[in-house]
Amino acid sequence: MERQEILNLMNEIQEKRGRKKVENEEVLLSEIGFRSLDFSELALRVERSFGGELPFDAVALREIRTAKSVLDFLEEAVKSA
């Protein structure tokens, strides 16, 4: 699954919730209102899109602060799933 597809899904969630889309990957999640529930929804959409289960990398999860880190995490998770 391509990074752009994951970003599109992330922006769909933002849009449905009436929030700003991600224009700059360095943006802090707290600035665009993207929270753990949104992250879980995004991960679920990614899982459904590629038809598998994402692995759980606790250390990487702890580091998530920006849109970039969300995309990095999910891109990597899809690759290793």
Binding site: S36, L37, F39, S40, E41, A43, L44, E47, E53, L54, F56, L61
Partner: peptide, 10 residues
């Protein structure tokens, strides 16, 4: 409920 990654259910 639907099982969701990292958080349990949504």
């Amino acid at each position: 409920a639907v099982r969701a990654p990292f958080i349990g259910y949504l």
